[in-house]
Nucleic acid binder design. Structure first.
Lengths: 121, 121
DNA sequence: GGATCATATTCGAATATTTGCATACTACCC
DNA sequence: GGGTAGTATGCAAATATTCGAATATGATCC
């Protein structure tokens, strides 16, 4: 079961990992847009837009309602996209470590919680 | 410049979007591990582990120090992985909408900020 | 009916990714 | 030196993804 869960998460990340789809989601985060709007904003062929929207739809990230002959797309889970954009906008400092760092922390953890230090020969 | 930025973000998400790599990151979030540890935990061939670690290394997500003949891998940007796992663990409710919802919100926005409602014929 | 607009789908070619396998490398022990 | 443990790399096959082109659908207008 955990494996299935992991696969779902990986699938989500992989499908989010496409520049065009990210841009579409960013645009939809600004407001509802129809296919032609997106085509004009991103300047890519309409079938390509439809293809990416189909992927996002299958993943239940977007949906649409019809307004005349227009299909107005919107974020089906806006909080998900908001969290994604926040994640992508974050700053994540690099923390280099060596054997001594980990040994010290290992001792600390050991004292606190009785956990053995990792990766000892 | 913004396009480059988007491509980098997409690359990051795509490379995170692989079940094995996600599992490796989850394990490393629990503590430092060497290649053999990971091989045993995930039960996959060692060259495969090394390949995924190489991908994660190139993305500057992990690094290692040497301890004798072991290479002890750790998260190079632990806050990034923590944010990722939090994002993946979140609950994101579905919000269905129709033309009337958006029309109402459009009017609200229009009054507040003078913005025209989206997706009108 | 024919033309046009908005959108979706299908298909094929190009490309990228993933994996398994074989092998190479290095450090250590005897 | 030879053997072994830990790790990395190169390569080929299988698989998946992406894009463009062509085509299809359905609504609207003349």
């Amino acid at each position: 079961m955990k494996d299935l869960d992991i696969r779902e998460k990986a699938d989500l990340l992989r499908l989010l990992g496409h520049p065009t789809r990210l841009l579409i989601l960013e645009e939809l985060a600004r407001g509802v847009k129809c296919v032609t709007d997106i085509r004009d904003l991103l300047d890519i062929p309409q079938p390509n837009v439809s293809q990416h929207l189909a992927v996002l739809r299958q993943a239940r990230l977007v949906d649409f309602y019809e307004d005349g002959q227009l299909r107005c797309y919107y974020l089906l889970r806006p909080a998900l996209v908001a969290a994604l954009l926040e994640f992508l906008g974050g700053e994540y400092p690099v923390v280099k470590r060596d054997r001594e760092d980990v040994r010290r922390e290992g001792r600390l953890r050991e004292q606190e919680r009785g956990v053995a230090p990792a990766c000892e020969a």
